[in-house]
Design a protein around this nucleic acid. Structure first.
Lengths: 71, 71
DNA sequence: ACAAAAAGTGCTTTATAATACTCTTTTTAG
DNA sequence: CTAAAAAGAGTATTATAAAGCACTTTTTGT
């Protein structure tokens, strides 16, 4: 599975807000280890974990119908 | 955590497509048990599981900056 | 109303996410 | 350059998601 775009979004948002991993872990209630694991591309977080991280940065997890990509 | 809206979206999409849980489990490669668990509101799926379910129905998991709700 | 299909539950096992340390590597300010 | 901060990694433990099975309940079409 490739979660690169979601990972990138989390990192980009965090950096935009000038929040460190330690701060985000603290704010979100997610362990620092799990956050590091996820941001470094090694993770498969639960929806709860992802929601906590997103929520702490004013984002939310959504489902969207895929736009057909014309190749 | 309350994932009601995501659960509703999955169920609604599945019903729109006239796909049963058995069919979706099969198509997505997610176990029937995990799908039932999630749709019945008892689950906390991993991002991989949620992505598989969404993907099989032409949807994708996305993060979105929350729109401030005026109460 | 009833039979069939679909949805949901109980139980167990296995796999792995989350956690909590410690330690190393990389990035950043000064 | 280099000290401090931040990011990433190793290991162990605990919690729980995923899976597979059988079984029950609910929904549906006739």
């Amino acid at each position: 599975m490739h979660f690169e775009s979601i990972i990138k979004q989390i990192k980009a948002r965090r950096e935009d807000l000038q929040v460190t991993q330690v701060m985000l872990a603290d704010l979100s209630g997610v362990s620092l280890r799990a956050l590091k694991q996820f941001e470094s591309g090694k993770g498969n977080p639960t929806l709860e974990t992802l929601s906590k991280l997103a929520g702490a940065m004013g984002m939310e997890v959504r489902l969207q119908v895929k736009i057909p990509q014309v190749k």
